[in-house]
Amino acid sequence: MTDPIRVLIVEDEPLTAEAHAAYVARLEGFTVVGSVGTGRAMLSAVAAERPDLVLLDLDLPDAHGLQLVRALRTAGFAVDVIAVTAANDARGVRNAIALGIVQYLVKPFSFRTFSERLTTYREYRQGFEGHRSLSQADIDERLGALRPATPSEPGKGITPGTLESVRAALMGATGGASATEVAEATGTSRVTARRYLEHLVSVGQVDKDVRHSGPGRPEYEYRWLR
């Protein structure tokens, strides 16, 4: 039986770090060996735990993630790194790729997206097992395994522009919002707003609960999951 992939989580927001650890725990073939919140702690943890994979927030309080990747390479650590960050500027992404970061996850993301990225990474690693040498075709196949066969697509009838508007409205709501409130904020119908909100619930980005506001039929309140 193949040993699980040992994962170190590097994230300075405790709730986000806990969420990432919970995501990893749901995936077959992975185990969390530690969670730290600073660059200095990351370098120490890599030396002590020898993880296979680091889930690295690029914006840490004491160092930028790319500086830490350079430090790892200088120290001779060949650990794989997946960038987990809200930063998506073109130059930063290019620099990350140049340093050998194997995947790039832009916050916020759903469990489905997280699962896709780590599953493709696991398949990439497994492609090297049992081989002493690789042909050109083998190498091409291994590199191709790092990319999902198809990008994650919204559900049927979900358009990216409206989806982003609903996300923005919900993220800006204090304490959550109903479908009616989201519809007013986005200029859509209540039925449309509810369909998009339910889609976000299905991909793990939004939670919903019953809002009790007096007599009459209760309505659902939707909350963005940070």
Rank of each mutant, 00 (worst) to 15 (best):
R91T: 12
R211A: 13
P4N: 05
V206M: 09
A168E: 09
A193F: 06
E129K: 13
Y23A: 01
G175R: 05
V210A: 06
L68Y: 07
T16W: 00
T119K: 04
A47I: 10
E18R: 12
G214Q: 03
T174R: 15
S44L: 07
R73Q: 15
P4I: 06
E181M: 05
G157D: 08
V182Q: 08
G216R: 04
I9T: 14
R167M: 11
E116T: 14
P160S: 07
D209H: 12
D12V: 09
L72D: 00
A83T: 02
Q126D: 11
T16G: 02
Q136E: 14
A177E: 08
T16L: 12
R132I: 03
E184K: 07
R122Y: 09
A177L: 10
V84C: 13
E181T: 15
L56H: 08
A185L: 04
T2E: 14
T16S: 09
W224P: 04
L8S: 10
P61S: 03
R147H: 12
V203P: 01
G76I: 09
Q126H: 08
A96W: 05
A90R: 08
F77T: 03
E141I: 03
A25E: 11
A41R: 13
S133D: 09
L58T: 01
G187H: 05
V106W: 06
V32G: 03
D57F: 06
V24E: 00
T159Y: 01
V191D: 09
E164D: 09
G37L: 06
I139P: 00
T162Y: 01
N95L: 14
L56F: 05
D3T: 15
S44R: 13
L134H: 15
Y121H: 14
R217K: 15
G176D: 12
Y104H: 00
A149E: 10
L200I: 12
L170R: 11
R132L: 10
P215I: 10
E11K: 04
A25W: 01
A25T: 07
D89G: 09
E153Y: 01
P108D: 02
P148D: 02
T174N: 11
G65I: 00
G100N: 04
T162Q: 02
M42Q: 06
V210K: 04
A45D: 04
I9A: 03
L197F: 11
Y196F: 14
L200G: 14
E28H: 14
G29S: 04
R167C: 11
T186Y: 07
L72K: 03
A21Q: 06
Q103G: 13
Q205V: 05
V81D: 04
A45V: 12
V24C: 13
L56V: 07
P14T: 07
I101D: 00
S44M: 02
